[in-house]
């Protein structure tokens, strides 16, 4: 970006005119660069969409056929129902979707409720050991899950939770993860303390302050936590891979992986299936983005 230093000896009119011209140039430059970037970001998605409507013979054509004709809509139901080697058992992506939804929704409830109440205690209540416990909470963010993965697996297996959804759901109700606690705490801290005091004078209990006063003010942060937890569980691969064994219990991520290993070259079907899996996430993002961009901006940094 070339910018000239404004010359103070120029007449004031010339100075402001050149400054305005410069700003206009910068804006045009910025728009061009951002547009090129935006096309690059979108191109993979268009490629995905285009491939998903192709006939098998068109998939590998070079140069690529961007708009196949006719559009093969039948790829979608086909990809959805064959879903790997378990079609004979009656297992399709519908099964996987139902399983994934169950896990993602329950975890989402667990994470939002439990992280917000723990964060409330750290942000608003005084108790011995609060400082060290909060530092402990932050320290757990540094521990890679792979370290705890093996003993946790052995623990859950020994109490008979292997091949159930419990290892994927129950941990969400236990604090909801250090990062979410941190995020919620930062948000609570930004709300004036007078709110609590007024409510307490009116006879509110601690839980009442949390439930009736602070939580309604926390919608942006709660939405952020909820959306990210849902997306995380929807995408989670390692945990279902370790804990789920029965085919009918598997999740979308596992189902798709299995699909890839069997139909690795049928990219038109793979893209159709992948798109269907991603669509709910895009919808959630578009609905929630107003909230959580604000949520990140106000809490993620302080």
């Amino acid at each position: 970006m070339s910018e000239t230093i404004p010359n103070p000896n120029e007449s004031p009119n010339g100075f402001w005119a050149s400054k305005r011209r410069n700003e206009k140039m910068t804006k045009i430059f910025t728009t061009i660069v951002l547009s090129i970037g935006a096309v690059t970001m979108i191109l993979p998605v268009i490629w995905m969409l285009s491939t998903s409507f192709k006939a098998p013979t068109e998939v590998f054509a070079v140069p690529p056929i961007w708009i196949p004709s006719p559009l093969h809509f039948e790829n979608y139901p086909k990809a959805w129902t064959i879903s790997g080697m378990y079609a004979s058992e009656g297992i399709t992506f519908t099964t996987y979707t139902f399983n994934t939804l169950l896990i993602a929704v329950l975890s989402c409830i667990g994470v939002t409720s439990s992280s917000s109440i723990v964060a409330f205690a750290f942000a608003r209540l005084r108790f011995p050991g609060r400082g060290p416990l909060f530092i402990l909470c932050l320290a757990t963010m540094m521990i890679p899950t792979q370290v705890t993965m093996i003993p946790t697996f052995i623990l859950f297996k020994s109490i008979g939770w292997y091949d159930t959804y419990l290892p994927l759901i129950v941990p969400a109700f236990l604090g909801g993860g250090a990062y979410n606690i941190f995020l919620m705490r930062q948000f609570f801290m930004s709300i004036p303390y007078e709110m609590d005091e007024a409510a307490k004078i009116d006879g509110c209990t601690n839980f009442g302050v949390f439930w009736r006063i602070l939580l309604p003010l926390c919608k942006p942060a709660l939405t952020t936590v909820a959306v990210f937890s849902f997306v995380w569980n929807w995408n989670d691969f390692l945990n279902p891979l370790i804990y789920l064994d029965t085919n009918s219990k598997k999740t979308l991520a596992l189902g798709l992986t299995n699909f890839v290993s069997l139909y690795g070259q049928d990219y038109h079907l793979l893209m159709a299936a992948s798109l269907l899996i991603v669509i709910p996430l895009v919808a959630m993002f578009l609905i929630g983005q107003r909230y959580f961009i604000q949520g990140i901006a106000t809490t993620g940094l302080k």
Binding site: M41, I42, L270, I277, V278, L281
Partner: peptide, 20 residues
């Protein structure tokens, strides 16, 4: 447009897309 891909993130579907 810039933020959306990072939300779809580390999912299997995105990995399948990039494999292609």
């Amino acid at each position: 447009i810039y933020y959306l891909p990072s939300v779809l993130g580390a999912g299997v579907a995105v990995a399948v897309l990039w494999k292609w």
